[in-house]
Design a protein around this nucleic acid. Sequence first.
RNA 1: GCGACUAUAGUUCAACGGUAGAACGACGGUUUGUGGUACCGCUAACGAGGGUUCGAUUCCCUCUAGUCGCCCCA
Length: 466
Amino acid sequence: MPKTIEEEKKGSGEVKIKRNRNKMFQTVRGMRDILPKEQPYWQRLRKAVEKIATDYNYDRIDMPVLESREMFERGTGKTTDIVEKEMFKFKTKGGDDVCLRPEGTPSAVRAYLQHGMQSQQKPVKMFYYGPMYRYDRPQEGRYREFFQFGFEAIGEQDAILDAQLIQLASRVFQAIGLKNISLQLNSIGCKDCRPKYNKLLVSYLNNRKAALCMDCKKRLKKNPLRILDCKEEKCMQVVFQAPQTVDHLCDSCKSHFTMLLECLDEIDIPYAINPRLVRGLDYYSKTVFEFFPESNEDETQGALGGGGRYDYLVENLGGPETPGVGFACGMDRIVLEMMKQNTKTYQEPVAKVYLVQLGDLAKKKSLRIFDELERSGVMVAESFGKKNLKSQLRLADKRGVSIVLILGQREALDETIILKDMISGSQEVVTFKKIVDEVKKRLKKSADIAAKKTKQEQEVNKLIKK
RNA sequence: GCGACUAUAGUUCAACGGUAGAACGACGGUUUGUGGUACCGCUAACGAGGGUUCGAUUCCCUCUAGUCGCCCCA
């Protein structure tokens, strides 16, 4: 009956406590732990994002997870699925209507306005990463708490920024070793040409209303553009022949889009124009784009990231007329894709030295030795809680260290320590004073040997390739 | 929010209407202060709550969670 806490006395007198499973907790729905095993991938991704952000002159900004609910209703759009049914929203004790942010862009724009960044040189370039929250049905690659990194450039309407942003994104994918990422893009016009196009689309669709799914019938009134994006077979057939946004752009939108395409050609970034790509957020205008892993052929699911231009968002959130472009990527999905593609992960430095102690005096002294080594930059592993030499050496071996320092009662009294080379098995006695230098010397030696080896291997590989 | 499937040691999997086995892992040991292999031992589970039944982990229902499809997106 492991359901209650029982204390059982064993023959040895040891007291064993059985745990109570009923009192154990697990993550709430849609939340997850990112375990140490997965961390190297995250680490590599974060490093890549930071590096490229620096290269492209984007400054880091962190925004709060909790924001005003109305901000997303006005920014992202009240009729979008994200705001309409996927927000974690609640009232605070003080009565404020707040929500957990479902995405980052409105927050970035809010920060831009709140801190008077209008007065900075434009465009203002910022990047961020952090958790986002959407109350959706969880499944693989879709969690209620997920991480996004995003880049926003506010205050410039030139299409070259759109192109540079896409270039930046593909540099990130490249830097983390992801292959076969495809880019889809489209232009959905501005406040001049979109209403005209909308009318055209509505009148086209109205004639074929019967063939549309229930959702699309609603969308016809609320947000006809989204019908283009519907995955229902019957809707897709109707949409197939529908007028396309790119054919009905005004002159300025047309030249903006052309410029973007020319820029992309110039920097050799392959793309596919998808006339059905509209994105599910209301603030987009002109350019919209999404990235897909090519393994995901149907494209209906698993976009790694996306973005576009939002020339009216700043205004909508109470600021002056200011254009902007941005994109965001789902880090959970990227990590998943990295693991699928088996990309090399960031190598955490590993301790090469293991400190073994025997007896009370040695135990106390070993704390000091550890500290001295750590201060001089040597990574040391230990198992201070263990007592006998055998089990400590076994653990040292499992760790794969090259040097073990053994500090026993005798050595502690003489202020010496045994230095054991784990590869040859040989050992010698070194005084406390000399130990740091001696360890460093040996580590350097083995590092040099390792470096030589990899160099040789690389040369051999080169020859083989030739 | 809808539909389908699943739920057994830390992990991956078994079996069974009469309360469960293995592998790997973790921990410990193979004589007192010397690692890797091997051998041995130990650890630990029927997701939660109801019902049917003499008896359920097994059958039924509800809940919870996960996976997949829809939807949506990242």
